[in-house]
Design a protein around this nucleic acid. Structure first.
Lengths: 246, 246
DNA sequence: CGCCGCGTTGAAGAAAATCAAAGCACGTGG
DNA sequence: CCACGTGCTTTGATTTTCTTCAACGCGGCG
């Protein structure tokens, strides 16, 4: 484990000085293991810390009064969790682990310390917040204006695209540890309907359902179904920082 | 025009020093009038500036390939527009004016200058980004897991709540310059269905449709219909800044 | 073994979309 | 001043999409 996961993620945006790398590394000082299905926090809990995902998958969600729930976003290694709650005392959404995971917690005040210490990191964090928003926007469009078929395909392609950025993709096949129940809650559909729609895509050899999770067989094909436009995932820090760094 | 609109908005979060007020004021140096229906930018345009809303209403949206569109958010005086695009060269969404408006533009690099000059303002901006996200989250939940009736009521109550914060509300009646077409695009419904649902609420004396726009007659009643929980609009900066300011 | 979470399937029903047509207010130009 | 077009609303009839209910299979695990 040469450079930490978060450093790798940030270097994707801009070259970091040694000092900045050390500062970032300090955010990943206390990696901790959590097992599958751990509820890290619920909506309404005190929001005291952020987490970076070193290993594993997680998702944020909102529980509704009538027992249904809405999944808001799914997190993969390299992502930062909880930035959403920065301005709030209470968690806006719950967070649960999808797989066994390794996370690093850092307290909220630590973030404003980082802002003070490095303008570049401050900008990168702001950029990540902006990216998080772009993802939510796309999710919004997905829910509001696409058919079940497109919703499903679009969501899956997005996950694939996000994984490509930090992890290496294995050929054209990709395994995601998602359940159809989770997909339903993420896409605002019933499990039954997701199942049928998924079945459709399966018959077209675009996806498959192994023993557990979901297998993407033909990402290019899925892109076509979803009419996927990746521009909302193409951040650009240089445009932000005309000057040098720091 | 004592203190600028944006200062008023920010002071809602934390007391500002004179220097910080001046810094903020400098962001509203060039107020400019725009007329109703002006397209400020389209999705894909270069993202070079943010705007603060001094007067008027605006909305951001995404146009779809099939001619439909999704309205993402509606902006009222005091709001900051375009923060979403911070990390991107191109605009993630389009922006159009709903009414005649007065906006103040400030270039993107100016924001990172502000970050450098005032840690408090940096934190407040981050907080606003966090709040923007919370609003999107709620919109997401709205689209994914609520009925047309609830969607409509919830959206309207949210707008009322947001207006209360910066503007003074006139009794229990509130006029919004929204069209049913816009509501449809915001809620992921067809205009026809919004119309019928709206008609329902009208018969229950919760809303009314004057010559133009929409009139809220009974906000408390709408809250009940929407099962509205305002906590996602209750930011808290003190939790962020344990220490003094600056 | 027996339970539980997850996937699958069928049938019926509800919610919302679509299609089509018309009305109404407003602004524009003849 | 009136005719006309345009954008927004309204209403009815029909169709589609998705949900709900119900039941069953299946694999893992205490």
């Amino acid at each position: 484990m040469d450079s930490s996961c978060i450093v790798k993620h940030f270097q994707h945006y801009a070259p970091l000085s040694v000092a900045e790398q050390e500062l970032l590394d300090s955010l990943e000082k206390s990696p901790k293991e959590y097992s599958k299905n751990t509820l890290l926090w619920s909506q309404g809990d005190a929001s005291e810390a952020f987490y970076s995902v070193k290993k594993g998958w997680a998702y944020s969600f909102r529980d509704m009064e009538d027992g249904t729930r809405q999944v808001l976003d799914v997190y993969v290694p390299g992502d930062i969790i909880g930035l959403r709650d920065f301005g709030f005392q209470k968690r806006v959404s719950g967070l649960k682990l999808l797989t066994n995971s390794v996370l690093c917690a850092f307290p909220k005040p630590r973030l404003t310390e980082v802002f003070a210490e490095s303008l570049l990191l401050c900008n990168i964090f702001f950029m990540i917040a902006s990216r998080d928003q772009a993802i939510l926007i796309e999710r919004l469009v997905n829910l509001g204006r696409r058919s079940a078929r497109e919703k499903l395909a679009h969501f899956l392609v997005e996950m694939a695209r996000r994984l490509e950025k930090t992890n290496i993709r294995v050929a054209n096949h990709l395994h995601l540890p998602l359940t159809q129940t989770l997909l339903a809650d993420a896409l605002g559909l019933s499990v039954v309907h997701v199942n049928r729609t998924f079945h459709e895509l399966k018959e077209e050899k675009l996806v498959d359902a192994p023993n557990s999770g979901i297998m993407l067989l033909d990402i290019e094909g899925l892109k076509k179904v979803a009419r996927f436009d990746p521009s909302y995932l193409e951040e650009d820090l240089d445009g932000v920082l005309k000057q040098g760094d720091k």
